[in-house]
Amino acid sequence: MNISIVVPAYNEAESLPELTEWIRKVMQQHNFSYEIILVDDGSNDGTWAKIEELHQTHPAVKGIKFRRNYGKSAALNVGFAATSGEVIITMDADLQDSPDEIPELYRRVKEENLDLISGWKKKRYDPLSKTIPTKFFNAATRRMSGINNLHDFNCGLKAYRSDVIKNIEVYGEMHRYIPVLAKWAGFNKIEEQIVEHRARKYGTTKFGFSRFINGFLDLLSIFFVGKFGKRPMHFFGTMGVLSFLIGTIMALWIIGEKLYHIAAHIKLEREVTDQPLFYIALVAVILGSQLFLTGFVAELVARSSSSRNSYQIEKEI
């Protein structure tokens, strides 16, 4: 099969018939073999009934239904597991992504041997309350991930080689950072393509302000797990040793100053315990010890994990 199209849907009963019909026309025009996997993320507006109806009239449509709303990342992860195509396309169900982009995305993945292509909605129809925070997070993600050629990490329209989606796990709000997950898994052929952003035709956006907070926390999680997931002692141990050394140096300075005054028979203006530096040194030593012990425990957990030696292997002979 050429293409698998994964579409997460939450209360999108109005848009699904138009979207699937549009996809069908594009696929037939280019003679692609394809499947459309619609994932109902706990909708309460009749979305699942519409998916069942589409499946009856359109055999290429497959459906997965969650018992409750888990979020876009969960929908994508389950949809990825159900795919069988060479190239996987993800798009939103709200008709803001155009299926007309699919043939070019497929061509580039195949001909340029790319792992992932992320859409860039250069011209957007979103309010400033959404576009400004999005630009900030995209800039932060570029800096932290080192993927400097992407302008829009969160664009729902993406194309993947099948190996990529079978070797990453998407959870929480991680769908925003799939290119980062792919890079940490060893897939480095990541490119961008300018795509059309259409105004929403049906319903309203399903994302609130909390997505920015959750997205930022997940970005930190990706950075930490990707860099230190298999060697947590390198992070906690380094921070702990630095803190411990700083505290020790401060303590030695205070002790040296005390001894000097005793040897010179000079009375200290104030006792050691009255100095702020004493408490700063004490906190630094305690914090350093705790960080080091945290790293030690995390190292034990990592070593006992069933996936401690699970690595992404591209080829075997």
Rank of each mutant, 00 (worst) to 15 (best):
H234I: 15
R211E: 06
K72Q: 09
A159Y: 01
R176T: 06
S243N: 14
D218L: 05
K189A: 13
V78C: 02
W22A: 10
G172K: 04
L116S: 03
I3E: 00
I222C: 14
F278S: 07
R308T: 11
V195N: 02
S310Y: 02
A264D: 13
P127D: 09
P8D: 03
W120H: 13
S221N: 11
A298R: 09
D100W: 01
L76S: 02
G119R: 04
R270C: 03
L287W: 06
K227T: 15
N154E: 04
Y106R: 07
E271A: 15
H30Q: 13
R68P: 02
M239D: 01
A199M: 10
L128S: 10
S210W: 09
R231E: 07
T273W: 13
T134D: 09
F228V: 05
G208R: 06
I313G: 02
S221T: 15
K206I: 08
N77V: 06
L116Q: 04
M174G: 06
D100M: 03
I102M: 04
S33I: 12
I132L: 13
T204C: 08
I255Q: 14
L157D: 01
K166C: 00
Q56Y: 08
S84R: 03
G208H: 06
P127M: 07
I190F: 01
P99F: 01
S4D: 00
